[in-house]
Design a protein around this nucleic acid. Structure first.
Lengths: 217, 217, 217, 217
DNA sequence: AATGAATGAGTTTTCATTCAT
DNA sequence: TATGAATGAAAACTCATTCAT
């Protein structure tokens, strides 16, 4: 988990440190929201976990909803940062596609709280996500990447033509996301631990393979 | 929505109101749980929606958790019934696979409350689903079906060998489930209405096609 | 204080008595609102004073505002009843005017909580009073009474002509209301106890006299 | 609004900001107390409105009550100043009485916050006013003025004898004060805007006239 | 079987006030 | 002088559940 953004952080550590308190609250909130959802999360629990007075949460964020949105923003910043650290330059279409699929799997694997919070957002009709400033840019960006890669791959003969980039994008997300989101249920149904290292490797391999085969000409 | 099963109804005949009240409560509960999840659901809302006294809910089911489990059981009965009505007999492996994939999509498309409740179960670590009697049979059943179909298809040369049935099963579920589960978020990201009739048809075609291509030899 | 209206009261006393609980809550609320105003009143205090669980207040009335409105309605019913018990029939204009002025003084003298609550309403821009159904009828009714009486008195030569009934009505209210409303401040300023029996008699006499003299031809 | 007095300001010169901050706080407090009463006023709102740090309020005044008392003192100083600016010298009793009645009306008309704060004081049993140093002088001063004027008027034959100066004083206050204090309620009852310029003129004329007629021999 | 009354333990939020710099 | 951080106590309101009839 990357550090939450530190609006106005001071350099040297102090006993009374606004930035640090804010950060502690955000970290605690992220955990609490991931575990219990927006409605299920307890403001008291967040404050207690952060080790600060409950009122400070209201002081810094306004109300429960507002700190929830702050967590969402933090998460989206984190994703952006994650993507910027991936180096996709100069990759051929098939290598690039593999890397995207794999990196999505890896991200979700490493960030169960992201999955949990997204699930909750969906149940709430994505009302909070819709308010994020970063949001409108994401869809077009994804579509551009997949369109270009698919087209390039088609020219090079590694991908078939006629793949709908939106559907592909959703499918790639689905294959990884559903695995983590539905983990408890899947484990109950298949009576298997699906979160062991080998199980994760197996799933990752399957997902990448599944997508690449589906894209063959 | 099929009639809720009346598990726990007493054997000897009473005034038929008892069964009717129980059913009304279950219907209302299913709606409420789908909309708000287990934690978010309100016992008052269920009773009000059912048009009966709140205490009757406790009389018939014991507590909130118990009626939730009753709803889960009802849903699983419904699925079983849905599957039994599908006629898979005599289908060739590729036709069969297509039919399975399509029918899963259709089921989820028609039962948004199932999706909602499953999502909620996952967040709660599937604790309630784990208690269902029907559950242990489902995984093995699914695996048997997919194993047989894959093997048969491989023999006939329409499917490649080496496909993991568990992974395939999860992937087929993922491609449809995630679409409905993440609908609000996806619509926000792609700034598109994904629940129109044409959009649903497009997604269904894509999913079936995606799976079948990924299984090609 | 008259009994609050007993929507649905049952005849014989019971341990669990909705009407009685409702009544107890209203009585306690009236006291608390009179003492502390709407904002200053404590829901806990009302429930404690009524000797019932706090939740019942929400059960019966909805929220703090709603019980406040219920108190207002009760008060207005009480006033209506008070007026209906006064017998103005067949009185000559000057006797009638004296009786009105005196009865207003008496009512305010006997209902300090009415004064307190009206004061609070004024500070809140009369927002709750404006919602009362009984309200629109009051103004016109008062004006009709004063207009008729003034006209009749003028014809009989006991009142001068040209008195504005609205202004007179406000003035009559003012002379009594202000005395009770401003009692603590007036007592502080004049360093006198103005609520003794003799002081009240003196004020009453003064008010009636003051009005009658001001109306002389 | 006149400048607030700076009671408690230190003698030796400091940065002029101190006085300015104190003044800004008082102005903001007066507004806030008038709008919301002592209990309803928010320390945060006062500080924010004054544009200074909340702690400064505590620094300069001690606590919420103390700044409230400071506002009361300011208001009383203002009234004293207002009266001193009126020139009553050499007026005949009836002219003088008219001028007093009119000037009271005018003062209340121009100082709605005075009315609001006095109302609040009354609800609080005038506890804070009682502590004011200026207070003990006011009652006797008023009584002296009215006694002298009434006596002089009686001698000159323009006023009747036997008018109780205390009662008269209260009545004159009532006729104007109640109009402004009860404005929202009166407007609701009579369904009329009573704060327009013509309405105010009409009321002023009525009040002066009413008093003078009541005092005729 | 059915109903409405009643409750206690929580949950978010507010607010005056004090602390540390 | 000035500031922002921090706090504890309390307030309105919610909710699953039990009691009495």
């Amino acid at each position: 988990m990357a550090e939450p953004s530190l609006n106005g952080a001071v350099a040297r550590p102090r006993r009374r440190n606004a930035a640090s308190t804010r950060r502690k609250l955000l970290i605690a909130a992220r955990q609490e929201f991931a575990r219990n959802g927006l409605a299920g999360a307890r403001v008291d629990a967040i404050a207690a976990q952060a080790g600060v007075n409950k009122q400070l949460l209201y002081h810094y964020f306004g109300d429960k909803d507002a700190i929830y949105v702050a967590v969402l923003e933090w998460i989206y910043d984190e994703i952006k940062q994650y993507e910027q650290n991936l180096n996709f330059n100069g990759l051929k279409p098939d290598r690039l596609m593999k890397k995207i699929v794999g990196s999505w799997f890896d991200y979700l694997s490493l960030h169960p709280d992201f999955v949990a919070i997204m699930d909750d957002e969906s149940r709430n009709q994505a009302v909070h996500i819709r308010g994020l400033q970063q949001l409108p840019a994401i869809g077009p960006l994804l579509l551009r990447i997949f369109s270009l890669t698919l087209a390039q791959g088609a020219r090079e003969g590694v991908f078939r033509r006629g793949v709908n980039p939106t559907q592909l994008c959703i499918s790639i997300g689905a294959l990884s996301y559903f695995y983590f989101s539905g983990l408890p249920t899947l484990q109950a149904i298949f009576n298997r631990n699906l979160s062991t290292e080998p199980a994760l490797r197996e799933r990752r391999r399957h997902v990448v393979d599944f997508v690449m085969r589906a894209l063959r000409p």
